Simulated scan of single mutants.
Amino acid sequence: MARSPPGGTVNFVTKQPLSDPYYFIEETAGNFNFYRGEIDLSGPVDESGRVLYRLNASYRDQEFFTDFSETRNLVVAPVISIELGENTNLTVEGAYKSLYQDDYNLGLPATGTIFSNPNGDIPRDRITNEGELGVSATRIGYRLEHRFNENWSFNNTFRYGYVNYDGGGINIGTELLPDNRTLLRTFNDLQDQYYDYRFVTNILGRFSTGSIDHQLLFGVDLGRLDNSLSFTGKSGAPIDLFDPIYGQPPGEITSEIDSNTVTDELGFLVQDQIRITDNLNLLLQRFSLM
């Protein structure tokens, strides 16, 4: 279990290598200059089939119905699986994502869209945000699995993750003035970075006490989350929703944040899943977090 607010992420499900060669290529095009390409390649690397690979990648470029809005998205996810022995397997996988959004839509006031406005209807393609947001994420790790026998197994995983949010000149509407056409805005620059390290070891065993079957799990979870945030807020230039002038300089600084937080975690888990009958299971669990 990977811990993340508010309740955690139960599992990451990724596409795994296939023993038979597999090749998939797709291209898609649509309205608003929408273009997307995707590949999914898999198969054995060596003649014995002990080393398998899989590569997923996609790229998307599109505009939107709102003025000037555009996004680009690149994802690359390679996986290598190595059979180290008859009962031992090592899987190394990673993922990289780069998302860029330019002048993305942050909405319009209700007066002039949902409700009537004495100046008329605000054009639905009107944009009030002139900022850009770039998000890059990297994840890499391994999973080592070993079966001692039919009933007992061991697995160890490590994962490193990095996420960076870089936003410049993001305008957020705050108030529509009484003239029902001038929108006050904020102007925000931010950089938010997350470094996540996660090391998990589990031992799983199956046994019976009389007619009752047990599935016993011992687990250790070690993690560190390093988060740094830099934020500058300014008073934004007002914008006329019916006759906008873009590129106006922002005003004075209204707020600043420069922080760094490091959270270390150490968790222990003991769990016994007991099958009393075919239709009745009992789960006993003890989890300790430090």
Results as ranks from 00 to 15, higher is better:
1 M>L: 14
2 A>I: 15
2 A>M: 15
7 G>R: 12
15 K>Q: 13
16 Q>D: 13
20 D>Q: 14
21 P>A: 10
22 Y>F: 12
27 E>C: 10
29 A>E: 12
30 G>I: 00
31 N>D: 11
33 N>C: 08
34 F>P: 06
40 D>N: 08
40 D>K: 07
43 G>D: 04
50 R>N: 12
51 V>N: 11
54 R>L: 04
55 L>A: 02
57 A>L: 02
59 Y>I: 02
63 E>I: 09
65 F>P: 09
68 F>S: 09
69 S>Q: 04
75 V>N: 12
77 A>L: 10
88 T>K: 02
90 L>F: 02
90 L>H: 04
91 T>R: 11
94 G>N: 05
98 S>I: 13
98 S>R: 14
101 Q>S: 13
104 Y>E: 07
113 T>K: 05
114 I>W: 13
119 N>G: 08
124 R>F: 11
125 D>W: 00
127 I>Y: 06
127 I>T: 14
128 T>L: 03
129 N>S: 03
131 G>M: 09
142 Y>I: 10
146 H>R: 04
147 R>E: 10
151 N>K: 04
153 S>L: 05
154 F>P: 01
155 N>P: 03
157 T>K: 12
160 Y>C: 01
165 Y>V: 07
171 N>M: 03
174 T>F: 02
179 D>R: 01
181 R>S: 04
184 L>P: 01
186 T>N: 09
191 Q>C: 10
193 Q>R: 11
193 Q>M: 08
194 Y>G: 12
196 D>S: 06
201 T>E: 04
202 N>K: 09
204 L>P: 00
207 F>M: 04
208 S>K: 08
208 S>P: 01
214 H>N: 01
218 F>G: 05
224 R>Q: 14
224 R>F: 10
228 S>C: 05
230 S>T: 08
231 F>Y: 11
232 T>D: 12
233 G>L: 08
233 G>Y: 10
233 G>N: 10
235 S>W: 11
237 A>E: 07
238 P>M: 05
239 I>S: 03
244 P>T: 13
247 G>W: 06
250 P>Q: 01
250 P>K: 01
251 G>V: 01
253 I>Q: 09
254 T>G: 00
258 D>Q: 10
258 D>V: 13
258 D>C: 08
261 T>W: 08
263 T>W: 09
264 D>P: 03
264 D>K: 06
270 V>T: 08
271 Q>G: 01
276 I>F: 07
276 I>Y: 07
279 N>R: 11
283 L>G: 03
284 L>R: 04
289 L>T: 15
